[in-house]
């Protein structure tokens, strides 16, 4: 923000009156009027140009190298930064004076994200930059397989800032501590530290003179007793009800859930439509037959009346009747 203030008195006096945050540039107009004692003539106008720094917060810390650090406030991104090869980042976000709550997370170059961590109750003072330093973002983590056979190796890996120590926890027990490589990657493989059933793992970071980071995201994997290549050995999986989080069940004809659901829909629609066609056709034929029956009966009535009028023998009338009945049948 740039403010121009014109004063009609000595420049030395003005500078002592202003707050220290202001950067002052003082000029006498014209410059030739500056007397040897470096003060302007009181009768001359002095222009004071003050640059007032914006209020803001500077976030700095560590994350995996070449990762994107995202700073959010109220679900809106207020700033992003890309970490350097050492995993360091720094970003100044201009903000209004007052108390602010931010969240921050990083996404590494493999697309894995750290959990969002909260940076709460940051007081931003007007025209002052508030530093939030040495933010230790947790490492990223992934697991090589969702399910393994007991004895089979499973690899846990991820990224973090070089020069930090990774602490890996498996089922809440620290099983591995190591210095993160210069490329920012870490990896640990085990075929024995796990237990049968569901295993969960997470990691934290420690760095010299920086407090331990919050835990990374939690990854899980299953360990089963039998050989996974054996079709009879199915790893324990979530039921569709749990996985999808909805009532009922998923039909799977072996084509995958989505395709099977579509096929089921098509099948049900076809059955419904066919039933409708059959019902309508039956109705149509019934109505047609009924109409014909009425017509034949009408004809018969006319014929009988005619026969009676002509005094035809009873046998002839009965014959006409039986013919009509046959026709109706």
């Amino acid at each position: 923000m740039l403010k121009k203030i014109s004063f009609g008195f000595s420049a030395t006096l003005v500078s002592s009156l202003l707050v220290p945050a202001l950067v002052l540039a003082v000029s006498c107009s014209p410059p030739s009027l500056i007397p040897p004692n470096n003060t302007c003539d009181i009768s001359e106008a002095v222009t004071v140009t003050a640059t007032v720094p914006a209020s803001g917060v500077t976030f700095s810390g560590f994350a995996p190298p070449a990762s994107v650090v995202t700073i959010k406030e109220n679900d809106l991104v207020v700033g992003t930064a890309v970490t350097n090869s050492n995993g360091e980042f720094s970003k100044t976000v201009t903000s209004n004076p007052g108390v602010h709550n931010f969240t921050i997370y990083a996404t590494d170059n493999a697309g894995l994200s750290t959990p969002e961590i909260s940076i709460s109750n940051i007081s931003v003072i007007a025209h002052t930059n508030t530093p939030v330093t040495s933010i230790p973002l947790p490492p990223t983590i992934t697991v090589s397989a969702d399910a393994v056979t007991n004895g089979q190796a499973v690899s846990l890996s991820g990224q973090g800032p070089p020069g930090s120590y990774i602490n890996l926890f498996l089922n809440s027990t620290k099983i591995y501590t190591s210095l993160i490589s210069a490329s920012g990657t870490w990896s640990y493989s085990t075929s024995s530290d796990y237990k049968l059933g569901t295993n969960s793992a997470y990691a934290t970071l420690t760095r010299l003179s920086v407090e331990e980071s919050t835990p990374s995201k939690v990854v899980t994997f299953q360990v089963v007793e039998c050989d996974l290549s054996d079709p009879a050995c199915a790893p324990p999986t979530q039921t569709p009800k749990e996985a999808e989080g909805r009532k009922g069940f998923d039909i799977n004809f072996g084509f995958g859930v989505e395709l099977s659901r579509r096929l089921t829909f098509i099948l049900l629609t076809t059955i419904f439509t066919s039933s409708l066609v059959v019902v309508l056709l039956l109705f149509f034929f019934w109505k047609r037959r009924r109409k014909k029956k009425t017509e034949v009966l009408e004809e018969l009535k006319v014929k009988v009346e005619k026969d009676v009028d002509q005094d035809k023998p009873k046998e002839r009338i009965e014959k006409d009747f039986s013919e009509a009945e046959k026709e109706i049948e």
């Binding site: 995202t70 809106l76 991104v77 700033g79 992003t80 201009t94 209004n96």
Partner: peptide
């Protein structure tokens, strides 16, 4: 893209650079 809504505060004459991560 990971970041879809930005609200950036700044002053006139400043230069800012923001990053969007594409997966």
């Amino acid at each position: 893209v990971e970041q879809k809504d930005f609200l950036l505060q700044t002053s006139s004459g400043e230069t800012i650079s923001e990053n969007i991560l594409v997966n």
